[in-house]
Design a protein around this nucleic acid. Structure first.
Lengths: 238, 238
DNA sequence: CAATAGTATTTATAATACAATTAAAGAAAT
DNA sequence: ATTTCTTTAATTGTATTATAAATACTATTG
């Protein structure tokens, strides 16, 4: 169990964060007052208030005198905060949300390939190539499939040398992990998929940004199509 | 002066946030200890600690016993947090950062146009059209140029009906405001620009997602080219 | 020299008291 | 009855003090 965190404050942050994102405390609704939280969790008001402040900073709640602690509207949630994202995705597995997730991932990764082709340093290229080698090994079962895949995408985004894109690496990584869980593709990377990644790498290496963009786009739209198909199948069942 | 915030805790958050993003406290370096902050700002340890927790939640700092409060590595900063983003952009105007910003904006807005073409509701289309009307008025000086432009982009992103994209509206808005400040285009929207936006709208309305994507992409790359030109000019001077 | 124990510094937590804010109830006025 | 004002009470905001826990640094010891 990963639930035991650094300290009392962080434990409470995690606990409430999960409950909010799971909908146990629903949007617009109220959390227990500070005093109640102290009793429920048997901790001091100091620790409680610090947890409340942290969740406020992440956009999940707001607290005002006499009104108490209310769950903020979803649009205020900091979806790009690593904690918030994990709470949402790990707690509420949902194909529709996954599709929304992948749509953003597509937007980011295609342009990342474009920018990588323009800006990748020698080291960046080596990193991408190393990930490819791991993928190759994964096709024959000698390395971990997911990790190699994740490493490839991470190294491409990193090669953009754009801080905003780099910040999204965690976001993408989480997306991939959830994606893998949902599509149940625990199987090995196929030769075709490997080749598609090699192609993207070649374009990046040659500085052919538009081709890298297009190639990444094709791969991404294919992934979304997979999820769309699953959604259609699910909707036909019901 | 916008510096007087809701309460002492938030004031300190704002103050330290600005100082960190401006580099007054540099990455890897240390902030004053809790005790020192109490003295410097003449507030209680309670308020100080709460501020520290909020900044920790935003990824700007980390604090550990005996070690004190240290400025976290840039990659941990929550760039998509509205506060952090504002502190960075308003405090440190930088053409290179602006370019990085626009590169991400391009990625998001092009795909947003694509998704809007697929998912826009009747209301969404009305909102976009209203923004266009404002832009038209702006070309003849009857409405505010920036606001109309911002409203257009906001309504397109909103029409994706994708929560992740919608969360980025604030991000884009900030980008546009900074962009306007930097490029000094305080002038009216030109007829050409207006027509480009109308074109995107038409594609969205007709559900022609690929065309909407391409049209948005062209507009965005043109904007980036403008900034690139400014950067080149600047580098030639020095 | 290396491992160990001790020390001091800093954050973490607790407990208590009071202040400030504000929603809701009640009173007064029209 | 409706509005306006006042009061009340619930809840967060701030301050203070005390103690615990964590850990970088120092000293000791074998």
């Amino acid at each position: 169990m990963e639930s035991s965190h650094r300290n009392l404050t962080h434990q409470l942050v995690h606990d409430l964060g999960r409950k909010i994102t799971e909908g146990i405390y629903s949007v617009g609704g109220r959390l227990p007052s500070e005093a109640d939280l102290c009793v429920q969790f048997n901790i001091s008001r100091t620790a409680t208030r610090e947890a409340v402040k942290m969740l406020t900073a992440k956009g999940l709640i707001s607290s005002r005198p006499r009104q108490g602690i209310t769950v903020a509207d979803f649009k205020h949630w900091n979806l790009f905060d690593a904690d918030v994202l994990n709470w949402i995705l790990l707690g509420r597995p949902d194909l529709y949300l996954l599709r929304h997730f992948l749509q953003l991932r597509l937007a980011i990764e295609a342009e990342a390939a474009y920018l990588a082709a323009q800006n990748a340093s020698e080291d960046d290229l080596i990193n991408i190539e190393n990930a490819l080698i791991r993928m190759k090994d994964a096709t024959t079962g000698q390395d971990d499939t997911h990790e190699a895949d994740i490493e490839f995408h991470q190294s491409v985004i990193s090669a953009t040398n754009n801080p905003f894109f780099k910040q999204l690496i965690n976001f993408i990584t989480t997306a991939l992990k959830v994606n893998i869980r949902f599509t149940n593709r625990m199987i090995a990377v196929t030769e075709d998929e490997y080749q598609a990644h090699v192609e993207i790498f070649e374009f990046i290496k040659n500085g052919n940004s538009q081709a890298a963009f297009d190639a990444a786009m094709v791969t991404q739209r294919a992934t979304i199509a997979l999820v769309d198909a699953q959604i259609v199948a699910l909707e036909n069942k019901s």
